[in-house]
Design a protein around this nucleic acid. Structure first.
Length: 504
DNA sequence: AACGGAATTG
DNA sequence: CAATTCCGTT
């Protein structure tokens, strides 16, 4: 019966999209392997049709909720021709992503996971590129605010959100991927139209991205505009607002970008990540570019770092940018807000038991408007890249409870507050020459930073595996010694954050 | 529900 | 290599 399980072919019918061949490779893998779960998830997430099955969780970018585990499993099983698939198995697969740093679990929220944008985004942008000027129809410029900052080359002015040629590229590969493969008999009459309509996240991400950049970084200096660095920009109309996409985050290109920023060696990019990269021969970046000042870059990096910290992502997911120095991070909230639990957006380690208690009240009332205001509200404005910037606030289902909206609007409206920096904290980053020789290798970061924790020794004794685990789950400080490789991002080590946070 | 080891699979 | 399958544990 496997025989009958063929993966749908190219969307040929649609009318010759012109993507590069590699784009057709069943989207995922390098060698046109099989579709990967995370990709599949993304596909589902991008389709409104599946909103009721799985959807981005508002409040956290990249975070999604599987509203109907069984259904998702079913879909996945169908796709993989694994009728026996179920959530238990699927979730096992998801769990494997933890170590790969593709995903992590949002603790305390049922069926909620979060993409590690660093892992996915970065490397994926390059992929977006469309062969040279075949530029995707860039409809509406990302976000008004952004316009001031970035130069969007005159793209086609296709009707945006509409139906337009949805992107010569868009539908293609991903669509195919999402398409239910006709699994022999099985094939139910599923709508499964992952294929039309929206463009994949990555496409959309870009503009959002740009807008974000404009917002968080650019806003401020705004006048300076010194195109020091050129980054490729892949445009794509934001077909529909999906502010939670994890792909709307990075202005930086993975590898090979114009910027030439290598990923951290420690960051072993697993195959899936590269799956999108065009074949070696194809030089992706040719189309549009936007200017990018070092300051912005720094901000971006900073925010990324914050994110890593805040969400307990592995620092290793954070790429290194040789020429850039990430200023001492202060991802903390305002210094004046000490007592607060340090940033975790995720609910603190609520005891499982307690949690259950808590949940009991909302239990079987899932799909509709379940979880949400659960997210810890951040006191400050910092929020990190994820939560801001993106486009509209996805109010669709339930209004975002907290001030997120506030932050947003304010930001957008004024376009000057730095989102990541708390009000008072002056731009920590002085005038770092953007091309510093890269600081101390391992010693503590700048002397000024934390006094280092006492307990770290203990960690050293911990088996690597455990350390890793800890790093992810609870103890931010644990990361310290867990340098399995090198951790510092340009001298800024995760621990600095943690520590800073800790004693703050 | 969530985790993760272990063996297995294509 | 990325799951899939099974399963004991938390």
């Amino acid at each position: 019966m496997k025989a009958g399980c063929s993966i749908v072919e190219k969307p040929e019918g649609g009318g010759g999209y012109q993507f590069p061949d590699w784009a057709y490779k069943t989207e995922s893998s390098p060698g046109s392997r099989q579709i990967q779960l995370w990709h599949f998830i993304l596909e589902l997430l991008q389709k409104e049709e599946f909103r009721h099955v799985i959807a981005w969780q508002q409040g956290e970018y990249g975070e999604f909720v599987i509203k109907d585990p069984d259904e998702v499993a079913r879909l996945w099983g169908r796709r993989k021709c694994k009728p026996q698939m179920n959530y238990d198995k699927l979730s096992r697969a998801l769990r494997y992503y933890y170590n790969k740093r593709i995903l992590h679990k949002t603790k305390g929220k049922r069926f909620t996971y979060k993409f590690n944008f660093s892992k996915l985004v970065m490397p994926n942008y390059p992929f977006i590129n469309i062969r040279s000027s075949a530029v995707v129809p860039q409809s509406a410029p990302p976000v008004p605010t952004a316009s001031s900052r970035f130069h969007f080359p005159p793209l086609d002015s296709h009707s945006p959100t509409g139906d337009g040629p949805r992107g010569r590229f868009a539908a293609g590969s991903l669509a195919a991927a999402a398409q239910e493969s006709s699994c022999g008999t099985d094939r139910k009459a599923e709508p499964v139209d992952l294929e039309d309509g929206s463009a994949p996240e990555w496409h959309r991400g870009v503009d959002v991205l740009s807008s974000r950049s404009a917002i968080d970084g650019g806003g401020i200096e705004h006048l300076k505009r010194k195109p020091d660095i050129m980054l490729p920009l892949f445009t794509r109309p934001a077909l529909y607002p999906d502010p939670h996409s994890p792909f709307a985050v990075s202005p930086v290109t993975g590898r090979g970008g114009v910027l030439n920023v290598p990923m951290s060696p420690a960051l072993s990019l697993t195959p899936p990540v590269f799956s999108y990269s065009p074949s070696p021969g194809l030089s992706p970046f040719t189309s549009s570019c936007f200017s990018f000042s070092p300051e912005e870059m720094k901000r971006y990096l900073h925010s990324q770092a914050c994110s890593v910290f805040n969400y307990h992502l592995s620092p290793r997911t954070f790429p290194r940018y040789p020429g850039l120095v990430v200023p001492p991070l202060q991802c903390q909230m305002h210094p004046e807000e000490p007592a607060h639990f340090p940033i975790k957006l995720q609910p603190p380690p609520i005891g499982r038991k307690n949690r259950e208690r808590a949940e009991s009240s909302e239990e079987p009332a899932p799909t509709s408007a379940p979880v949400l205001p659960r997210i810890k509200v951040e006191p400050s404005s910092e929020k990190d890249p994820e939560s801001l910037g993106l486009s509209a606030p996805a109010q669709e289902e339930a209004g975002p409870p907290h001030e997120r909206g506030t932050t947003l609007s304010r930001t957008i409206g004024e376009g000057r507050d730095t989102i990541f920096a708390r009000p008072s904290a002056p731009p920590t980053w002085p005038s770092v020459p953007s091309s510093i020789p890269n600081e101390e290798p391992d010693g503590e970061d700048r002397s000024d930073r934390e006094p280092s924790a006492p307990e770290k020794r203990e960690d050293a004794l911990m088996p690597p595996k455990l350390r890793l685990k800890r790093r992810w789950n609870d103890d931010p400080e644990a990361r310290e010694l867990s340098k399995t490789g090198e951790f510092l991002w340009n001298g800024v080590r995760p621990r600095s954050l943690a520590t800073a946070a800790a004693d703050a």
